[in-house]
Amino acid sequence: MKSFGHKGVGLRPPHYKDILSNPSSVDWCEVISENYMDTGGRPLSTLLKVREMLPIALHGVSLNIGSSDVLNRDYLKNLKLLVEGIEPFIVSDHLCWTGIEKRNWHDLLPLPMNESTVDSLVSRIDQVQETLGRRIALENISTYVRFQSDELDEADFIRLVVERADCDLLLDVNNVFVNSVNHNFDPYEYLKKMPADRVVQYHLAGHTDKGDFLFDTHDAEVSDPVWDLFQFTWNKIGARPFLIEWDDKIPEFERLVQEVEKANEMTKGLRAEKEYAI
């Protein structure tokens, strides 16, 4: 694949027109996979037009990789069709579960962080990568509760999963910060434990302070402590494609691009010791 810059946005319908009329404002886009599956309408036709101009990353929310249900074959079949049509440079989803017994809560739910979850994830990730015929990346999620049965801390859990499953990691820097506050750990120590050679992409987003905890709302600009963590991450792990996720109270496209440019400015002059080859 041809190399391209790092600046990305999560493409949402209110910005379809903007990206089509000004594709050079970013280097690539990420889209929510499920919004483009089972549809032959405007979302897909827009995505195909954007794809002619920019590299695309597919980011899913319903793979349900951590569930105890069998993997949804229909889902994988349709995801594979989308992957073949779009030829994304990254296919990702979340290190979470979304439902059991066929129900889907349409939410990124936390997993018990222990050996038996790791075993189950490793075998399921293997099946997904086998079916899609390519590697996938999984993202660390924001969480608000922890299980009694947790045996591992989050950084060790993630590291174990991606190394044993031989998959990639989409590192959401905001989620690291949100969890560090919600579960009382040092986010810098967490980032030091991340397996740099597995990290293929960064997410940045805004959150809301609810007093006793942080809520990952994706409805505001990135907060100062997350910018600090982002710079630390860039130095420690390296340069990777990054994007701003903004899913609620979505601003004008120009405002979103400003936030992306701000992130880009912050990476200038940093060491980025391990450049990632796309």
Partner: peptide
């Protein structure tokens, strides 16, 4: 089945 949080109310978080 969940741990008591280090601060705040578990039910509110759930």
């Amino acid at each position: 089945f969940l741990r008591p949080p280090h601060r705040g109310d578990l039910k509110e978080k759930f």
